[in-house]
Design a binder for these strands. Sequence first.
DNA 1: GTCGAGATTATCT
DNA 2: GATAATCTCGACC
Length: 204
Amino acid sequence: MNSREHQALLNILTRPSTEVAPLLLGAVLHGRGVSVRLTEVEAYLGELDPGSHAFRGPTKRTAVMYGPAGHLYVYFTYGMHVCANIVCGATGEATAVLVRAGEVVTGLDVARSRRVTSKMDADLARGPARLCVALGITLGDDGVALGGEFRLDLPQHPAAVFDTGPRTGVSGDGGSDAFPWRFWIPGDPTVSPYKKSVPKKRIS
DNA sequence: GTCGAGATTATCT
DNA sequence: GATAATCTCGACC
């Protein structure tokens, strides 16, 4: 990507993450021989957001989120998985967009070899940790800037239609209906199917 | 197809 | 010592 495009990208990313998130739907993230078209993302609003890692103030782990937009924030979770965010907003705001799911568009063979447990191609990057594995993202990539080994191509036109809802997997109040900051492309087979578990329906 | 439970470890209190 | 922005597998419909 040339510098003008990169500047245009940063222009977008420095907006509030709730505005940035829907604009990333349909964008293509490239890295390590695999490219993924994003179909599902979540916005996190730093210290104002009870679901964000930054809610309790800066820590060593969240330092990257407090930095400038256009960098990758990668973290370890549940002992065995990594998830990737794209840092948004102004420096010091600690806002970011979590990349939740996508469709592998190039490097299918590489992605398949990294995710041997996936039976279908639609599963290769369906879920934040899976997507990181497919792209070859590791903890060591925390803090890298887009435009180098990893690149992000915004869609020619913003997604015409998208849907929103409560975030999933977030503890505390962060997953409540008060924060409907999950965005996805309706009907796309690569959107994660995980739903909040509901009490067994009683049909009489 | 859906539901429930267990795995496993960096990071924080 | 407790927690976690998840995944996988087994049981069941």
